[in-house]
Design a protein around this nucleic acid. Sequence first.
DNA 1: TTGTACGCGTTATCAT
DNA 2: ATGATAACGCGTACAA
Lengths: 336, 336
Amino acid sequence: MGSQVTLAEVAERAGVSLATASRVVNGSERVVGAGLRERVLAAAQELGYTANTFAQAIARGRSDVVGLVVPDIQDPYFSVIAAAAMAAVEPTGEMMLGTTLRRQEQELRYVSTMRARRARALIMVGSRTTDNAHTRQVAQAIADFVAGGGRAVVIGQDKLGTDTVLPQNRAGAKDLAVALVDQGHKTFGVLAGPNTLLTARDRVDGFVEGLAKRGKRAGVVVHSDFTRDGGYQAMSEVLDRRTRPGCVFAVNDVMAIGAMAAVRDRGLSLPGDMAVAGFDDIPTLRDVAPSLTTVRLPLEDMGRMAGSMAMEEQAGERRRVIRVKGEVILRDSTRL
Amino acid sequence: MGSQVTLAEVAERAGVSLATASRVVNGSERVVGAGLRERVLAAAQELGYTANTFAQAIARGRSDVVGLVVPDIQDPYFSVIAAAAMAAVEPTGEMMLGTTLRRQEQELRYVSTMRARRARALIMVGSRTTDNAHTRQVAQAIADFVAGGGRAVVIGQDKLGTDTVLPQNRAGAKDLAVALVDQGHKTFGVLAGPNTLLTARDRVDGFVEGLAKRGKRAGVVVHSDFTRDGGYQAMSEVLDRRTRPGCVFAVNDVMAIGAMAAVRDRGLSLPGDMAVAGFDDIPTLRDVAPSLTTVRLPLEDMGRMAGSMAMEEQAGERRRVIRVKGEVILRDSTRL
DNA sequence: TTGTACGCGTTATCAT
DNA sequence: ATGATAACGCGTACAA
């Protein structure tokens, strides 16, 4: 690196000891005389001094870095949460970002990176999978991180033994199914996302359960990626069937958006020929037409809660699991 | 912090010197005997050792942190760039994220934070403003950062004396105007964004210039925020006028999306009653209907370029300004 | 090949 | 109130 000004240089220039300089630049107020204080400040100013965070962290034995690991920062679901968490962390901390691109090994890598960084906290958002071996590994890595003095907060399933923000996926999807039947829909399909993703499974299960409660069932269940393109593809498969359902539930909104595109690309009308519902209520929905029926999750709140839990001073006596419920919002995409 | 295992403990357990332990855990290969090597690795494994990045950074005099500062991570324009930059940085570095929420003082704060972190590089994306005093301050802060041995890359205007990825806003908007006139549009309006934002101004200027080249002019120019809601509001103002233009240019896509919503909310048809064009070609556009005419910027390339410039080893003999041109893409939203 | 010892920039303890 | 000085955890010349 180039020539960064050190505190020692500032102290020398101000004609004071290193300790005194340190005190005025950072330490508790009022411990140092006004005269010296001035001189130190002036010297720091003139030299363009900036404290070396690394040195501080190592000397203090702690840092204010919060690690945020998300599958994909481009996905609105995650970017909303990230922005909210950021806002909560920003006042006193700094945020390190890791994106896994949905690759499991990346998840592990980031946890250990945050451990190496002696991060103050780690926020991990994204669904767990059916890969129990991997889940165990992540849980272990996080346990190590926590043992080292870090906080960990997860948004998703409660499988990692951490403070958790837990969306009620199953209940929300069940409510949605009931509402759709009550609205008059008769036949259903499900764009189920990856079979290995717990969030997706919970939503499928909840939806099927809700249908059953009203004496209905899902005629078609198609698996695909948890993305816009996954939704498009899955819906295309549904449309290729001889018998099409009248209403399709996509397990998240981005998939639903892709599904709508597939419907439109076939020249079919929406919701006339095909009704579509999603899950999450991402902000993007404001601008999709017809407006999309979905299950609203308070994404901003979830991000903010995770962020503030991460920044809490106290290590917390007992771990917390905050259940967040989804609210069914009926819009035009399922209007009969 | 809790009890993190140190290299010294590993060394002791392995029965070797600190230096040897350091060599095997990090340093150049093959310098250490196979036997000791094994023992050190085993000890590290058993103890669950993780190198303290802070200590490494301070001892080495450099870090692999890259700071990314964006106005808003939820805006697709920035999240695409962020994701691409992330991909370029990830192999060897780590990314620290800062969002300014379009507040200027935050910009300065993050630059100095990255300086304190002795970050390897800083990527700043977002338009400069007409506030020259602030621009000077940021330029100075960045100069200090660079003097300290950091790299700086900017995506936006070339006003900070750094390596820069520079979109050809003016030329792109000009091309768009010409294309729209040639398509048969007669009367125009501009949703101009903030009057203080250089990117917005450049695009307005270019558009007006293009119109002039074809003997046309912009009948209405309305300023607003550079956001979806800004576009909605500005378009609402346009629609309130006695004489409405037939075609409106929103200086970015998110504004255009807001503008389309405003048109729709009045029960007007698009592009029948009002044609709309945007700028950027964000991925979100895939799912807006009617498809939006825009000026395509290679956002991913831009992010990737910035990321790899940030990770370059050599300090670069001369600063580079990479001009990126926009390509007019005519779609349904301006079809006559 | 391996170990010794010093330096990196701060903070914090203990005298003064 | 102020100043020495010992940590903090690691890398690395230099010596062996």
